[in-house]
Amino acid sequence: MEHDIAPQRRFDIGRILRREPLTALAVLVLLAICFMAIFAPWLGTTDPIALGTAPRMASPSAEHWFGADQIGRDLYTRVLYGARVSLIVGIAVSVISIVIGLAIGLVSGAVRWLDGAIMRVMDGLMSIPSILLAIALVAIIGGSLHTVIIAITIVEFPRVARMVRANVLSVREHLFVEAAVTVGSTMPQIIWRHILPNTVGLLVVQTAYIFAQAIMIEAGLSFIGAGVPPETPSWGNIMAEGRVLWQVKPGIVLIPAAFLTMAVLAVNIIGDSLRDALDPRQNH
């Protein structure tokens, strides 16, 4: 029986997918969207930016699956390329936020005299409603893929830093850390051997949530005109352009909306099941 309660919980992806069909579906959806994004040029698409590749306002047809927008761009093409923008933003923001948040959280949790100041700055950043901070940053620096990524990262990393810090503080209280101190381990050693392994699970789950959040914020920013440049095909931009005519041509708004929702939902479901898998105690 003893190996059952080993502290290192094995994490079997195959078992999770068999037990949770919803998660399996979410993984499939996410993979499909990744496939779309990567192979967009070879999936029967035209030029996503050039005008007049389709008749203006064309209805969905065999040739133009999702129809076309008011300046004659094939919607199917633009939605596929839009997946690229969302995924790039999602990946970049989650990776950078986790790295920065981890570094700041560790420093804050380990170095007592810096803790107060760092946390006040994090509190301040978190007091600005996320979309508003991102809007301000993009509007002022100027809209590009880089600035959108930077802006959303600034919104997301303080939460990671706070969580990592809280985790450091709670792990520090454990007997094994005290034991490590007693046998003469230095702080960097303790962080590396004890605190970091105990933080990885938390970070994996957060990566998923930040990914989902980043996709949503990017679309929101583009939608209100503070995102990637308007000619870039991103789901938020396509919806923003479709806004004027959406009562006549709801597809231009609703199709990218459906893709956006599926992507966010899939990533959130994956995040939830990662959370449950890594922390079975929390069953609600």
Binding site: A219, P250, V264, L265
Partner: peptide
């Protein structure tokens, strides 16, 4: 509630 966290506001708005 899972939908509430995942469907962006403007998408719900249009639907």
């Amino acid at each position: 509630t899972a939908l509430g966290f995942s469907v962006p506001v403007f998408v719900i708005g249009y639907v």
